[in-house]
């Protein structure tokens, strides 16, 4: 895909703060109409990537483009006419009411705000209280209404549902689903696998400032398998070929072996039958949520 057809394009983007590299050599392209989940542990570089994308930060190296145009802090606002943005920890203008803020935002966008009433019905935000008096969840509702107001071509969201109750989370996911049908683009970071799997076409995994995975949700779905837990007094037992996320533990002359197995089940059965002095065995579904958590765990351990 060439640059002009990509809504978001990052080429070898690096962002350093002094000697610390928050984002290192990240390249990606997101075409129009894609809903992309952006996942990774805290500190992986997701928010820094989003801040660079929106022109809050300068890229130390590389090139950031939105709608085919290079993004620099001095000119980022030109692209923002087509972008909605909300973050879980977003600070809205505290002295304004929600209604005042949304009216102000509508004037800045200078575009249609036809979906204003529809968004208010879906999120039911408290509009007539000063924003600084609202709960986090209510502020978040206003931020989401603001992000989708005027149906911008691209919506960038940084952990958008972190302050929402389940009903509002569902309302948000419905809007994203409708956005998808209308061919709009959404780029959202999230810690919730379920919402990523529900609405996204593609998942990007950041780890230590690098883009480690770029997979479709179908590919991510295939990452499931079996969680195997074996106890044996034969301490030389080796896990089968293809085992992943292996842990060994020896207590009271008993070896406990845990691993994830995604291969042929007949091979697993043969291996289990061959285990000497087998004391206990447990095979359970290794669901996607666990696969997702294991990615996070490896991140945190490395950190």
């Amino acid at each position: 895909m060439n640059d002009t057809s990509a809504v978001i394009s990052l080429k070898n983007v690096t962002k350093q703060f002094g000697k610390f590299t928050a984002v290192g050599n990240v390249s990606l392209e997101i075409p129009a109409g894609q809903i992309v989940g952006f996942v990774g542990a805290n500190g992986a570089g997701k928010t820094t990537t989003i801040a660079t994308l929106l022109g809050f930060l300068n890229a130390s190296q590389g090139e950031v483009k939105l709608f085919g145009k290079a993004i620099r802090p001095s000119a980022a606002h030109k692209s923002h006419k087509q972008i909605g943005y909300a973050a879980g920890d977003m600070e809205l203008p505290a002295q304004l009411t929600g209604r005042q803020y949304l009216a102000f935002l509508g004037r800045q966008r200078k575009g249609g705000v036809d979906n204003y009433k529809d968004l208010l019905e879906r999120f039911s935000p408290q509009l007539d209280k000063k924003i600084h008096t609202l709960s986090r969840g209510n502020k978040q509702k206003i931020a989401l209404v603001a992000a989708f107001l005027g149906e911008p071509a691209l919506v960038v969201l940084d952990e958008p549902t972190s302050g929402l109750d389940p009903v509002m989370q569902e309302a948000f996911l419905n809007i994203v689903r409708e956005y998808k049908k209308r061919g709009k683009t959404v780029f959202m970071s999230s810690h919730y696998l379920q919402e990523v799997m529900d609405v996204c076409d593609r998942v990007l995994l950041m780890s230590h400032g690098k883009l480690e995975q770029d997979v479709t949700t179908a590919q991510l779905q295939a990452m499931g398998g079996k969680q195997v837990h074996v106890q044996t007094s034969y301490k030389a037992t080796k896990p089968p070929k293809g085992a992943e996320s292996i842990t060994h533990q020896i207590d009271d002359d008993l070896l406990t072996l845990r691993f994830v197995y995604k291969g042929d089940m007949t091979e697993l059965q043969r291996w289990l039958a061959a285990v000497k002095q087998l004391k206990d065995v447990e095979v359970s579904e290794y669901n996607l949520e666990e696969a997702f958590k294991s990615l996070y765990d490896s991140e945190e351990q490395a950190a």
């Binding site: 929106l54 606002h77 923002h80 943005y85 809205l92």
Partner: peptide, 8 residues
């Protein structure tokens, strides 16, 4: 950042 995310 909230203000700069608008077309300003």
């Amino acid at each position: 950042r909230t203000i700069l995310s608008l077309p300003i």
